[in-house]
C-alpha cells in the first residue's frame, strides 16, 4: 500500500498539472470579453501563411481560379462587382446593390464585348488547330483600350455602392477585392505558364482533354518562359490601385476621383496582360491537340462567354 502511494504521487502531480493547464485555458476562453480575448490573432494578412493554401479538393476555388484565367476585361471594377456578389446582404440592401452592379456592368460592357471577340477568335482558332495571332493581338488592344475607361466612367456607381453599405460591409467588400486580386495574380503572374503542377492551367487542361504526356511536353516546350512585364502589363501599378481602393473604400467618406492617378497608371493592365497570357496559352495548345480535343476545347472556351459577370445577356 505504501509502495503504491509512493509510485502514484508523481502520477497525481502529472494529472494535476494537466488539469491546471486545461482549466487555465478554459477559463480564459469563457470569461474574457468575447471580441478581444477569445479572438486570437493567428496570422498576418499579407502575405498569407503557407498553411492557408486552399485544399486542392475545393471545386469552387478551382472554378474561381479558372474564371480569373479567362476574364480580364473589367479589371479592378470586375473585382468590385464580384465582391459585391458575396457580401451576404439582407434582401432589401441586396436589391439596391444589384441595381448598382447593373450600372457598373453597363460601364464595363464595351470591354466585355471586346473580350468576347477575343475568346471567340481563340475558340475558332483552337477548333481549326491554329489561332490567328495577329487578329487576337488587335482584339486585345481593343479590350485594353475599353477597359482603361472603366474607372472614370464608374465613379458614380462606386460612390453609390459605398453609400449603400455599412462600415462593416465596406470592410468586407475591400477584403474581397483584395482576395480577388490575390487570386488573379496567383493564376496570371505567379503561376508559370508551362507548369503542369496540380491546380495549374495546364494541369486542369490535361484533366479535361486527357492530354498524353507527349502532348503536355510539346505544350510546355512551346510555352517556354513568360515574357518579362512591360510598362503596359506590369502588375505593380495595379497593386497600388487595388490597395488604394481598399483603403479608401473603408473610410466614412469615399471619393473615387481621388483614385484617378492610380487608376490611370494601371489603366488596361489587367486586360492587356491577362488576355495576352490566355491567348499565348491557347496558341501553344491548339496545334498539339487531336481533332476531338480541339472540338472539346473550343466548346469549353465558348462556354466561358456565358460566365457570370462576363456574360452580356
Amino acid at each position: 500500500m505504501r509502495r503504491w502511494m509512493r509510485f502514484s504521487a508523481p502520477v497525481l502531480v502529472m494529472i494535476g498539472g494537466l488539469g491546471l493547464a486545461a482549466c487555465d485555458k478554459g477559463s480564459t476562453e469563457q470569461s474574457a470579453p468575447v471580441a478581444s480575448a477569445t479572438a486570437t490573432p493567428v496570422a498576418s494578412a499579407t502575405p498569407p501563411p503557407a498553411a492557408s493554401a486552399m485544399p486542392a479538393e475545393d471545386p469552387i476555388a478551382d472554378e474561381l481560379r479558372d474564371y480569373h484565367r479567362h476574364h480580364h476585361h473589367g479589371g479592378v471594377a470586375s473585382f468590385i462587382s464580384m465582391a459585391a456578389d458575396t457580401l451576404g446582404l439582407d434582401p432589401a440592401k441586396k436589391a439596391q446593390v444589384e441595381q448598382i452592379q447593373t450600372d457598373l456592368r453597363a460601364k464595363m460592357a464595351p470591354a466585355r464585348d471586346a473580350e468576347h471577340d477575343v475568346l471567340a477568335t481563340i475558340a475558332d482558332g483552337v477548333a481549326a488547330g491554329k489561332v490567328d495571332n495577329a487578329k487576337v493581338d488587335a482584339q486585345i488592344a481593343k479590350v485594353a483600350a475599353a477597359s482603361a475607361t472603366i474607372h472614370t466612367a464608374s465613379t458614380d456607381a462606386l460612390t453609390k455602392l459605398h453609400d449603400a453599405l455599412s462600415p462593416v460591409e465596406r470592410n468586407a467588400l475591400s477584403d474581397k477585392v483584395l482576395a480577388h486580386w490575390e487570386v488573379w495574380q496567383k493564376v496570371n503572374t505567379e503561376e508559370k505558364p508551362a507548369s503542369h503542377e496540380k491546380g495549374t492551367h495546364l494541369a486542369r487542361l490535361t484533366d479535361v482533354l486527357a492530354l498524353t504526356p507527349d502532348q503536355v511536353s510539346a505544350i510546355e516546350k512551346s510555352l517556354g518562359t513568360e515574357p518579362a512585364p512591360t510598362p503596359q502589363t506590369d502588375p505593380k501599378p495595379v497593386d497600388a490601385y487595388v490597395q488604394a481602393f481598399a483603403t479608401a473604400f473603408r473610410q466614412d467618406k469615399f471619393d473615387p476621383k481621388t483614385l484617378n492617378p492610380q487608376a490611370m497608371a494601371s489603366a488596361g493592365h489587367i486586360a492587356r496582360h491577362g488576355d495576352a497570357r490566355m491567348a499565348r496559352f491557347f496558341e501553344a495548345v491548339a496545334p498539339v491537340l487531336t481533332p476531338d480535343q480541339r472540338t472539346k476545347l473550343a466548346t469549353h472556351l465558348r462556354e466561358r462567354l456565358n460566365d457570370s459577370v462576363a456574360s452580356s445577356k
Binding site: 496570422a43 476555388a61 481560379r65 458575396t86 457580401l87 490575390e182
Partner: peptide, 15 residues
C-alpha cells in the same frame, strides 16, 4: 490557418 483568398472571394460572411 485563416481562410485563403479563394475562400474569402467566394463565401458570404456573417456580420
Amino acid at each position: 490557418a485563416p481562410p485563403p483568398p479563394e475562400y474569402i472571394a467566394t463565401t458570404e460572411p456573417v456580420y
